[in-house]
């Protein structure tokens, strides 16, 4: 695990500083990603969790510049890629790929499997020779466990697990260093989900990949992640290695979230924290802590002062004024 050997710093592949993404909507400015900070070390998996609409996918897309950030820095291998022009960014894209949740919606139904996997190779003119390209396509298909007989099949002929394998093969085609996995197994049955999770683990080891793994399934996130970022309403509220987080969640929201997981065992009893109320609107959110309305530990200053993400222990970051010192709410 990280940090065991003092002084040996893991190499940072990606660092995000004060990242913001606002959308103009009819009702006002929607703060989808609001001043977010995190980093991902080379070869590790950062899990990103949080409730629907908290900004996970937007963060993933902004990091890859599939969406333009409103503000902030995206530092990849030491360079702020927000400064890159079109050509520089096109080269950069080879290093950074994405796998989506719904394999069906993300694949062109009129293209055969080999065409889908070849596409990035053609667009980036990787091979002069068609035979070389087809060789690479077959190699990728075998890497992700797609039978050769499926080369000319179409997405609708395949089940969800195989379609997700196509998405993964396409993401691997240009030999990236970094892959954003946006709910890659959420649409799959558990038996197939386990097959895909194992595959992604094998690929990470074989190709030294770094993952940002977005999911709302906390058991899956704990299984795949080295470190985890918890988001709430556009903010990262806690960032820590998975062990620290699960053993000792510090942010009141993380505590509630982890306590809510239904555990498929009879020998474990959890004291469940049932949150009152619902997630507030991300449109023109007021100052102060975003979790204020549902927090069991809120104090008067939480309403007006926005808590920053600060280091509360080694490599453990929490955005709560009272982290480590929670007192029952009096208001």
């Amino acid at each position: 695990m990280m940090g065991e050997v003092k002084g040996l710093q893991p190499e940072r592949l990606l660092e995000v500083k004060n990242l913001k993404k606002y959308f103009n909507t009819k009702k006002g400015l929607l703060h989808a990603v609001d001043d977010v900070n995190f980093f991902i070390n080379k070869g590790e998996t950062l899990g990103v969790v949080g409730e629907s609409g908290c900004g996970k996918s937007t963060t993933g897309r902004v990091v890859l510049r599939l969406l333009e950030a409103t503000d902030g820095e995206i530092i990849f291998e030491g360079k702020n890629i927000r400064d890159y022009n079109k050509t520089e960014m096109r080269n950069m894209r080879k290093e950074m790929q994405i796998v989506f949740q719904d394999p069906f919606a993300s694949l062109n139904p009129r293209m055969s499997i080999s065409e889908i996997i070849s596409e990035p190779l053609i667009v980036n003119k990787v091979y002069k020779d068609k035979a070389d390209r087809m060789k690479r396509v077959r190699e990728l298909m075998s890497t992700v466990g797609l039978a050769e007989r499926l080369t000319y099949a179409y997405p609708h002929e395949l089940d969800g697990g195989r379609r997700q394998r196509i998405g993964i093969a396409r993401a691997l085609a240009l030999k990236p260093k970094f892959i954003v996995q946006d709910e890659p197994v959420s649409a799959l049955d558990v038996s197939i989900q386990a097959q895909i999770l194992n595959l992604m683990d094998d690929l990470q080891k074989e190709f030294d990949l770094t993952y940002m793994f977005i999911s709302h399934d906390l058991s899956v996130v704990k299984h795949v992640s080295d470190r985890i970022a918890v988001m709430y309403l556009g903010k990262v509220v806690e960032l820590a290695d998975y062990n620290t987080m699960f053993k000792n969640p510090q942010h009141p929201y993380t505590q509630a979230l982890l306590s809510a997981i239904p555990v498929p065992r009879l020998d474990v009893h959890r004291d469940r924290i049932i949150l009152e109320g619902d997630v507030p609107s991300p449109i023109n959110p007021p100052e102060g802590c975003r979790f204020y309305g549902r927090c069991r530990y809120r104090q008067s200053n939480c309403l007006n002062v926005t808590p920053e993400l600060k280091e509360v222990g080694p490599e453990t970051f929490v955005a709560c004024h009272y982290a480590g010192n929670l007192k029952p709410a009096i208001i």
Binding site: S191, Q193, S219, P264
Partner: peptide, 16 residues
């Protein structure tokens, strides 16, 4: 065996 166990660290899942 297919579901990740949140209470313990299983390196690898054993899917059907």
């Amino acid at each position: 065996n297919s579901i990740p166990d949140i209470e313990s660290d299983v390196e690898r899942l054993n899917p059907i």
